[in-house]
Write a protein that binds this DNA or RNA. Structure first.
Length: 389
DNA sequence: TTGGATT
């Protein structure tokens, strides 16, 4: 701030004293708002592999030229240090920044293709400008969607999510990041609840969740899958999984600082407030398994997997019962109890998504016909209503 | 007796 005042007073002095030519000293380029101008040296790097470390990140971009600063952005909310998959690199020399874009943009690292581009100046007005769009017609392309939204402002990025198993069919949901938050707000006002040209159903447009605001349940799912693999490796038999995962509460290290996080995750995930009897009877993860979680490569994108239909749940059923039933058979990425909108009671069915076919098939074979209380469950792969004759 | 979807 004092520097800005100095610069302004220098300029005013110059103006009032008339032209004095070369009296200003050379120094860092100062823009009118007083910030140093990083626009030619500062890069944003997107789609980094989840397990890439700060050191690897610095090493990769340091190979191009001298770095003034670099930062791999991590999750600071959960404190687990998870990479958010992007980072910033500020070079000393603008030529090196240009070279980094030309050399490293599009580089394939593991399953990712990294994107290297100039970072926009950090500013409050570009924050929270990311929209989540659902209910899109399946035929709508990314280009169509951009065309629809572009009337409200400059689009920075866009994406339509596709089904992973049926190879590229639109899931009808996507993201649009605008340059400015107010543009995103206008797009919500203009497009939320509207039918796109020729569409049968209206779309929903709202601000996207931040990846770091992931639910406890989603985090727990990731941790569970990772922890289970670390203990057991790939599994093919449920008996192995049952016997190899240590039971809950087995001698947690009292000095382990991750314990409060685990407790919070469990409570958030299972909705346990006051009734210990609702705790799962198996252990999703153990304290020990969490000590080396930072930087591990978590399992693939959500939305992929095998969807299982579970019928004849009681009106009181909640998500925890589905985790308890299906978790022991393998990697579960999502569970959902379908509830009546007004009563909030379970409508008698739900869905479970499992990553691996073998584990899903084993769960179905084992749980179809399983007696839960006074009900007999029907469990099968989800069928599509669209295939009816 | 087969939803909604969060890169």
């Amino acid at each position: 701030m004092s520097r800005m005042v100095t610069i302004i007073s220098t300029m005013e002095t110059q103006v009032s004293n008339g032209p004095s030519g070369t009296s200003l000293p050379n120094g860092p380029v100062i823009s009118t708002n007083g910030a140093t101008d990083d626009s030619k040296t500062n890069l944003i790097v997107n789609y980094l592999p989840q397990n890439m470390t700060q050191e690897e990140f610095k090493s990769l971009f340091g190979s191009i030229g001298e770095i003034e600063s670099c930062k791999l952005v991590r999750d600071k909310i959960t404190d687990l240090g998870q990479s958010l998959g992007y980072g910033f690199v500020n070079y000393v020399d603008p030529n090196d920044a240009d070279k980094a874009i030309n050399t490293l943009n599009g580089l394939k690292l593991q399953t990712k293709t990294i994107k290297v581009s100039y970072a926009r100046p950090s500013s409050a007005s570009i924050r929270d400008a990311n929209l989540y769009v659902s209910g899109l017609p399946k035929t709508m392309t990314q280009k169509d969607m951009e065309q629809l939204f572009s009337q409200y402002g400059r689009i920075i990025t866009s994406r339509i999510l596709v089904d992973q198993v049926t190879a590229g069919i639109s899931r009808g949901v996507g993201f649009i990041r605008f340059d400015k938050r107010n543009e995103a707000e206008e797009a919500i006002k203009g497009l939320n609840g509207q039918k796109p040209l020729g569409a049968a159903e209206p779309i929903t447009v709202k601000f996207a969740n931040n990846p770091s605001q992931k639910t406890g349940q989603a985090l727990l799912t990731q941790l569970y899958q990772t922890a289970a693999r670390r203990y057991t490796g790939p599994l093919h038999h449920q008996t192995q999984r049952f016997s190899l995962i240590p039971p809950f509460g087995k001698g947690p290290d009292p000095n382990n600082s991750t314990k409060p996080i685990l407790d919070n995750l469990l409570n958030a995930s299972y909705g346990v407030k006051s009734s210990p009897s609702l705790l799962p009877r198996f252990s999703p993860i153990t304290i020990d398994s969490m000590t080396s979680l930072a930087g591990v490569n978590l399992t693939g994108p959500t939305g992929a997997g095998w969807c299982i239909f579970v019928y004849n749940l009681s009106p009181e059923a909640d998500e925890s019962v589905l985790w308890q039933l299906f978790g022991p058979f393998g990697a579960v990425t999502n569970v959902k109890v379908i509830r009546d909108f007004t009563t909030n009671k379970c409508k008698g069915f739900g869905f479970v998504t499992m990553t691996n076919y073998d584990e899903a098939a084993m769960a179905i074979a084992s749980l179809n016909g399983y007696r839960l209380g006074d009900r007999v469950l029907q469990v099968s792969f989800k069928t599509s209503k669209q295939h009816k004759a």
